[in-house]
C-alpha cells in the first residue's frame, strides 16, 4: 500500500492550484523515494514536472511502485475541502481504484476522509536530459508574476533576454511596446528579494505569455523562481518546494520561421 502524511497540507493544495488548469489528467508516480509527476499540457507546448520527496513527509510508506491516475480538477475539488492548516494524508491500496485524502485539523478535533476514483492513464514520459544552461536567473517569484501579468496586457509573446547585467522581458502589440529589465541585485536585505544572474553566454528567446502566466500560479509555493535558458531549448521555470522537492515547468520557445 501507499501512504503519505504531509504536516503542511497547504503545500499540496498550492501544487494543485498551480497545475490544474494546465494539465487535465496525470499519473502520480509513487515509489519509496516519494511522489513524482510528469505531464504535458493538451497542446504539447509545456511540460510539468513535480517531485515531492519521501523525506518531506511526516510519514511515508510505499510498498510497491504505483501510478495513481488522477483528474486534477477532481483532486482540486477534494483538496479545497481541506483547511489551510490541516494535515493531509494520501492513501491508496496496491490493487485499488481509489485514493483517500484524510484531513486532520491542527488540534485533531476534526478528521475528514474523502475518497476519490482513480482512472487509467497511458502516460507518455519524456526524458529530460541534464543540460548546462547558458543562463540561470533567480528572482523574486512575485516580481516574475507581476512582469508576466503586466506584459500579457500588451502582447501575446515575450522575448526573454539574459546578459551579465540582468534579465529583460520585452513584448509588443497593437497598442505599443514594453521592455522591463531586472538587474542583478545581491545587496538587498532579504535573500528572497535578490535577483542573481549566472551566465555562460547571453541568450534571447521568445515565449508565449499565456503559458508563462499560467506557470505563475505556483508563486505561492516559493518566494523565489529560477529561470534557466539556453538557445533553442525550452525554458525551465522552477519553484523549489521547501524540504520536499520542486515544481518545474518547461515551455517550448517560439521558433523563427
Amino acid at each position: 500500500m501507499f501512504e503519505g502524511r504531509l504536516l503542511q497540507g497547504s503545500l499540496l493544495k498550492k501544487v494543485l492550484e498551480a497545475i490544474k488548469d494546465l494539465v487535465t489528467d496525470t499519473n502520480f508516480d509513487c515509489s519509496e523515494t516519494g511522489i513524482a509527476l510528469q505531464a504535458m499540457d493538451s497542446s504539447h507546448v509545456a511540460l510539468v514536472s513535480l517531485l515531492l520527496k519521501d523525506t518531506g513527509f511526516d510519514h511515508f510508506r510505499c510498498d510497491r511502485n504505483l501510478a495513481l491516475g488522477i483528474n486534477l480538477q477532481n483532486m482540486s475539488k477534494m483538496l479545497k475541502c481541506a483547511g489551510n492548516d490541516d494535515i493531509i494524508t494520501l492513501k491508496a491500496e496496491d490493487e485499488g481504484d481509489t485514493i483517500t485524502f484524510m484531513f486532520e485539523s491542527p488540534n485533531q478535533d476534526k478528521i475528514s476522509d474523502f475518497e476519490m476514483k482513480l482512472m487509467d492513464i497511458d502516460s507518455e514520459h519524456l526524458g529530460i536530459p541534464d543540460t548546462d544552461y547558458q543562463a540561470i536567473v533567480t528572482m523574486p517569484s512575485a516580481e516574475f508574476q507581476r512582469i508576466v501579468r503586466d506584459l500579457s496586457s500588451i502582447g501575446d509573446t515575450a522575448v526573454i533576454g539574459v546578459t551579465k547585467e540582468g534579465i529583460s522581458f520585452s513584448t509588443g502589440g497593437d497598442i505599443g511596446k514594453a521592455n522591463i529589465v531586472c538587474r542583478q541585485n545581491t545587496n538587498v536585505d532579504k535573500e528572497e528579494d535578490q535577483t542573481t544572474v549566472e551566465i555562460h553566454e547571453p541568450v534571447s528567446l521568445t515565449f508565449a505569455l499565456r503559458y508563462l502566466n499560467s506557470f505563475t500560479k505556483a508563486t505561492a509555493l516559493s518566494p523565489q523562481v529560477t529561470l534557466s535558458l539556453s538557445k533553442e531549448l525550452p525554458i525551465v521555470v522552477e519553484y523549489k518546494i521547501e524540504k520536499m522537492g520542486f515544481l518545474r515547468f518547461y515551455l517550448a520557445p517560439k521558433i523563427e520561421e
Binding site: 519524456l126 526524458g127 508565449a208 518547461y250
Partner: peptide, 14 residues
C-alpha cells in the same frame, strides 16, 4: 513572431 515549438520535439519519449 515565429511558430510555437512542440515540447516533444525537444525531449525524446522514454
Amino acid at each position: 513572431k515565429g511558430a510555437q515549438g512542440n515540447i516533444m520535439s525537444f525531449f525524446k519519449k522514454k
